[in-house]
Nucleic acid binder design. Structure first.
Lengths: 189, 189
DNA sequence: GTCTATACGCGGATAGAC
DNA sequence: GTCTATCCGCGTATAGAC
């Protein structure tokens, strides 16, 4: 059996990065803050990730994988076509419980804060959008047939609106409102 | 009659600030860039606005006033209760034509980029949210009666989702999708 | 792989003259 | 009110040792 080990520096950096970047803000968080939180030296960070952007990109990759897993579970638990389409809101509720300090979506935040993001970061953002788009189109098909793409657009928009609501502090119950709006959109098909 | 005059430094600064901050990003834009675009010295900027944040706050105030005026006009042109509620999407279309380079909503961008914004900036952001909330609740009343607050929440969410769509580059026709979603929400009351 | 120490550029802000 | 010139701190990144 293995003994209890200190999490390696790389993992500590990623954990600290996720915590700081996606709650206090990416640009608002100096590298030094992450280093102190992770109890790691600057040289180690640059040895592993090459740059602050590299660390951001890797933190986003981790987040995308985790988000996808949570969403998967919520889809499995859904009992109808409509519930499967709306499961993305259940996933959002579940995912947010993990990091209540997060102000809103890490991917949209990155897109806003880093308008000139390099290929690495831009790639992860594109992958997130693609995942959202592709899956929702799939779940929309049994409900909207050949208009599935439109319904998927509607749900993506409601989803983004839910995320932005956290940012604005209004509406007060973003997920509840978002789910209601998405359901109303689906009812129109 | 007055002769043609060069726009004073203060006005040039605001114009340059709006252009740069809300298309390239606030944090991504150094003060020097604004100064060069406005052809004004640093000392003048600080004499007028005190700080970069002060300039941002004033640029946001200008923007809020302009946005409000555009929205007003679209409401006047609307021919039904539903059209008045959805006029916010027409206003968005009209407003965006003024500055196509803008990546998304200046207020949501400021909230994201400046999580520790001072009272001045925070106040303008709150005023924007309040305007949105108060007006939409008013327009929702004839359609939803005592559930007007819920319908207003729905429309705000669709509106924010529309703005976020520009950021994500998806859905492809944000305003069209947003209006459709908001209309579906209204139909449920 | 990780550390200590340091270099270096950039960005916000100010002093003082006109 | 506006300019020229300059200061200063902060944040990213690197050099070199262990």
């Amino acid at each position: 059996m293995t003994s209890v080990q200190k999490l390696p520096a790389r993992g500590r950096l990623l954990a600290a990065a996720e915590d700081a970047f996606f709650s206090r803000g990416i640009r608002a968080t100096p590298v030094d803050d992450v280093l102190r939180a992770a109890d790691v030296s600057a040289a180690t960070l640059y040895a592993h990730f090459g740059s602050k952007d590299g660390l951001v990109a890797e933190a986003l990759r981790v987040r995308l994988a985790e988000w996808q897993a949570v969403w998967d579970q919520c889809v499995v638990r859904a009992g109808s076509d409509l519930d499967r389409l709306l499961a993305v809101f259940d996933a959002l509720a579940a995912y947010r419980e993990r990091q209540p300090a997060a102000r809103w979506c890490a991917f949209l935040a990155a897109a806003t804060e880093l308008p000139d993001a390099g290929d690495e970061i831009a790639g992860v953002l594109a992958a997130d959008t693609e995942l959202l788009n592709e899956r929702l189109r799939h779940f929309a098909r049994p409900l909207a047939g050949d208009r599935a793409a439109d319904l998927a657009d509607d749900v993506v928009l409601a989803y983004n609106g839910t995320l932005a609501a956290y940012l604005r502090g209004y509406p007060a119950s973003p997920i509840e409102t978002g789910r209601r709006v998405a359901a109303a959109a689906a009812a129109a098909y």
